[in-house]
């Protein structure tokens, strides 16, 4: 029996598990689970522990030089069903360049997923994550990305689906000169709940990270940004940047932003920031002064808010697809 994390736990402070079936058993429970592959970082994480107990065999994807320069899908389209427990490991061989597309679609009652992405030395990975589950799904996602020396991660994370979601992303820069650039966009409506719990650990010197997280919350939706950068004493010459930018569209929507730094050395460059605001009056006035009525101007500004994230997606088709999920139309209405 795994105990539910309490709201007294800092990382669950805003995500109460009371009155939801967070630990629903899958319809078929595997005889033996693959306990050895659970990433160490997720030990003592109730959801990862459940995943270890309930997930069927781990799906392993090895990306080698043969797939270099290609797009590899690691996504799932779940049918309407009960609880799903899934565990995936993607290993990217050294010096391989690949785009990993992770789409989470469909309408399970509960999705508990552990994903591990391992970047070999000198590899370059664009990881595009779209969580567009049904608005009735409980989503608990755990992702660990490890980067060996000289590897580069560009992560584009977009979240629009689910009812109550907690997405924990751990990025560990293990080798010197590894670089992680993450951009994330979340859009919530009605009473959706998004808890983004992210830790970026610089475990080697001269590593670089940048994490920019945009959130748009309307109606009675709620979002939490619980983002931490960790730089231990031995990791000298690191550069870390973290920014959380939020747009509130209603008086009932709630956003809690908690950017954190845990730095044990002086020889680093670190910056973080956070802002929460409604649609800018100056932006509205400028658009209105060009004949665009207020409702349309607001729509353009809200849709455009997450565009900086979309612009980072190198594949045009993928960008259109994720724009469609985020703002309801595939084109930015522009020039192409």
């Amino acid at each position: 029996m795994i105990a539910a994390p309490s709201v007294k736990d800092e990382n669950y402070r805003f995500t109460s598990l009371r009155s939801i079936n967070w630990n629903e058993a899958p319809e078929t429970i595997p005889v033996s689970a693959n306990s050895d592959v659970l990433p160490l970082v997720f030990r003592n994480d109730a959801f990862a522990d459940l995943n270890r107990g309930y997930a069927p065999d781990t799906k392993r994807i090895l990306v080698t030089g043969k797939q270099s320069g290609t797009k590899v899908s690691i996504g799932h389209h779940f049918e309407s069903c009960g609880a799903i427990y899934s565990r995936v490991i993607v290993e990217v061989a050294p010096n391989v360049n690949v785009t990993l597309v992770e789409e989470l679609l469909g309408s399970p009652r509960l999705l508990n997923q552990v994903l591990e992405i391992r970047l070999g030395e000198g590899s370059v990975v664009e990881w595009v994550h779209l969580q567009n589950l049904s608005r009735s799904t409980l989503g608990f996602l755990r992702t660990l990305v490890t980067l060996e020396a000289g590897s580069e991660l560009k992560g584009i994370i977009s979240s629009v689906g689910g009812s109550k979601n907690q997405s924990r992303v751990e990025v560990c820069l293990k080798g010197e000169r590894a670089q992680a650039t993450l951009m994330s966009a979340t859009r919530g409506i009605i009473d959706q709940h998004f808890d983004h719990w992210t830790t970026i650990t610089h475990d080697a010197g001269k590593t670089t990270s940048s994490f920019k997280h945009w959130t748009v919350m309307g109606d009675q939706a709620r979002a939490i940004f619980n983002g931490k950068v960790v730089i231990p004493a031995h990791a000298l010459g690191c550069d870390a940047y973290q920014k959380n930018t939020n747009l509130l569209l209603s008086k009932q929507a709630v956003i809690d932003s908690i950017p954190k730094l845990e730095i044990a050395t002086d020889e680093v460059k670190c910056a973080h920031g956070s802002s929460i605001s409604p649609v800018s009056d100056d932006h509205l006035y400028y658009l209105e002064s060009r004949g665009i009525d207020r409702a349309m101007a607001e729509g353009m500004l809200v849709d455009g808010f997450t565009e900086p994230v979309l612009m980072q997606i190198s594949d045009d088709v993928l960008r259109s697809q994720i724009r469609l999920a985020l703002v309801g139309h595939a084109s930015d209405g522009g020039w192409e």
Binding site: Y285, Y286, E288, R290, D293, D303, G304, T306, E307
Partner: peptide, 28 residues
Amino acid sequence: SPDERAKKRIFLAFQYPTAVPGVSVANF
């Protein structure tokens, strides 16, 4: 309102035009 005036073909070229991230020039 400003948009109603613009539709009546009044135009203001701003001294400090506002930067609007995320809205492309073409779309605007």
